[in-house]
Amino acid sequence: MSGTGDSRAATNALLADLREAGPVPSAAMRFLGRAARRSLRQASRRPRALAELTAVHAVLYAAAAGRRPGRRWVVAGWGMAVLHLGLLEHRNRLAAADLVTLLRANLPALPGGSGRACGVLAIALDVADGSLARRRGTTSPFGDHADTFADAAFWTWFTLRHDPSRTVRTAAVAAWALPVVVVTDVALRRGAVPERPRPVLLRPAAALQVVVAVRRLARR
């Protein structure tokens, strides 16, 4: 996708066409194909960012050898990031904050990803990428979306894998996985991308991160 305004308009047009066509497989496949082609065109217009993204994930891929979810996780993360490179807007390279976010997103695939302190490390990286982006003025829709997906992917996986409490696991799904499903459903029903939730609505999820990380750190 391209910059925020162009990307949103293009996505809304695709969603409107899908909604008008109705819930038929051919319309869904056409929607996915058109969206992927547009995203890949946007990525090809940013060859430096694409090269940086590929180099970073190549290093992560090598480090993930012999682990689960390991290399499949890294490859999936690379694909997701490539399809969103248009959200860099007028930038043609990744910022330091983007690299930190990508590292956090891939923690489950790396050595130490199942360690007791991994949740604390994820929180530290989350704080670091936000601080870097604000201090260097490199905030972008790409970084914002990468941060959201990194949180959803890492914390859902981390909690379901490591926390024995059914209540905490259910809360994790509600905090990180369910919003992705709800936003997708709303977008398909309305034929337009809904507004992102305000930061105040994300505070319970941030608090849950601390709870999950501390519980993992304290458990032998």
Rank of each mutant, 00 (worst) to 15 (best):
V173S: 09
T4E: 15
W155F: 01
R45S: 05
T138M: 00
H84Q: 13
R220G: 04
R34T: 05
G70W: 10
L94Q: 03
V183Y: 14
D185L: 15
R30G: 08
L32W: 14
T4G: 15
A177K: 09
R196Q: 12
S114V: 12
S7H: 14
R30F: 08
R198V: 10
V168H: 09
S165D: 02
R215D: 00
R104Q: 11
D126R: 15
R196H: 11
A13W: 14
D163W: 03
A172C: 06
V59Y: 11
S44A: 04
A153S: 00
A172D: 08
R169T: 06
L53T: 02
A62L: 10
R104A: 06
A27G: 07
V82D: 06
D147V: 01
L125C: 03
A105Y: 05
R67T: 10
A21D: 13
S7N: 15
R45Y: 02
R203G: 08
A177P: 08
D147Y: 00
G112T: 08
A96E: 06
M29L: 12
A36T: 08
S131A: 12
R136D: 07
A35Q: 05
H57I: 02
S114P: 14
G119D: 02
V120D: 07
P194F: 06
F142K: 01
L201R: 09
P108K: 07
G86R: 02
G5W: 13
R216A: 02
R116E: 05
A49Q: 00
A55L: 03
L85G: 04
R203L: 07
A205R: 06
V183S: 15
A206M: 13
G33E: 05
R8Q: 15
D17P: 15
R135S: 09
P179K: 05
A146G: 01
I123R: 08
R48C: 04
V168Y: 08
A95Y: 02
R190T: 09
S7R: 13
D144A: 09
R67E: 06
G112K: 10
E52L: 01
A153K: 00
S131N: 13
A187S: 05
H84C: 12
R161M: 08
H84P: 11
G143P: 00
R8G: 11
S114W: 14
V74I: 06
V24L: 15
M1D: 09
W157N: 04
V181P: 11
R48I: 07
A81R: 01
G5H: 14
R169Q: 04
T139A: 08
A207M: 11
N106R: 01
D17N: 14
G77N: 03
D144G: 09
L202M: 07
L60E: 03
A27N: 07
A43R: 00
D126Q: 14
G79Q: 04
T139Y: 07
A128V: 02
R37Q: 10
L103F: 06
G130R: 04
T11H: 13
T4L: 15
V24H: 14
L60H: 04
A207E: 12
A153C: 00
S26V: 14
L178S: 11
L94T: 01
